[in-house]
Amino acid sequence: MSKEKSNHKSRLVFLLFLLFVMIMGACSISDKENSKKEEGQESQKLDWQKKVKSTAASKKTKSEKADEVSLLASSYQPSEEELHAFEEDIIEEFSKDRYLSDINNHEYMLTNMFKCRVIDNFYDDQEQQPMDKFAYDFFQNTNYTYRGSMKVESGEIKRNEDKMNKSLSEMENE
């Protein structure tokens, strides 16, 4: 009987050791996956910036450039940090009254369009969150003035800016 107990103990120790090895292996794989995910996000970030820069430098029309950047933004998956940075960036550009100051700077305008499209795509329109509304109006103004379909001082642009200010107030009161 003591041999049987010893055998059970040996099996138990072996099984515990095997379980430990499996858990450690899973942790190692998880760390590698996280590292690859972080590398992928950094690569994706550099990739969108290169694509926007390349689009800005291309010989395409402003409308074709804006459409290309909107398409790129529609499939982009930002990290939480990056989304927050995009939100801060467009709020700052609007608050400092810079966002429509140089509508012929292709890279600047397309970068802003990309950021606000990513934000707008991230939020669920059903919830009508202030950041979502702000990004949408920011995009409309940036898009229309960049393409030349509206003047910076037009009534529609000013009405959208009023809505953007209202959205900013709602965000401050949250």
Rank of each mutant, 00 (worst) to 15 (best):
D102P: 03
E92S: 14
S101I: 08
E88S: 13
I91A: 05
R98K: 14
H84R: 11
E107R: 07
F94H: 07
S101V: 11
I103V: 13
E82I: 01
E87Q: 07
E87D: 03
E107L: 08
I103R: 07
H106F: 06
I90T: 00
K96Y: 12
E107S: 13
N105Y: 06
S101F: 10
E88H: 04
L110V: 04
I91M: 03
F94T: 07
D89I: 10
E107P: 05
M109R: 04
Y99Q: 03
H84W: 14
K96Q: 13
S101G: 15
E87T: 00
E93H: 08
F94S: 02
M109W: 00
F94K: 01
E81D: 14
L110Y: 06
E82F: 03
L100W: 03
E87W: 00
N105S: 14
R98Y: 11
E87Y: 05
K96C: 01
E88D: 11
R98S: 12
S101W: 06
K96V: 06
E92G: 05
E82N: 04
E81F: 06
E88N: 15
D89R: 12
I90N: 01
D102F: 12
H106L: 02
L83K: 02
D102N: 15
E92C: 09
F94N: 01
E82T: 09
I90Q: 00
A85C: 03
I90S: 02
N105D: 15
E87R: 06
S101D: 13
D102R: 12
E88Y: 04
D89P: 00
L83W: 02
I90F: 02
E81L: 06
S95G: 07
Y99H: 06
Y108C: 00
E81P: 03
K96E: 14
N104W: 08
S101E: 15
S95E: 10
S101Y: 09
I90R: 00
D102Q: 15
E88I: 11
M109G: 05
F86G: 01
H84N: 15
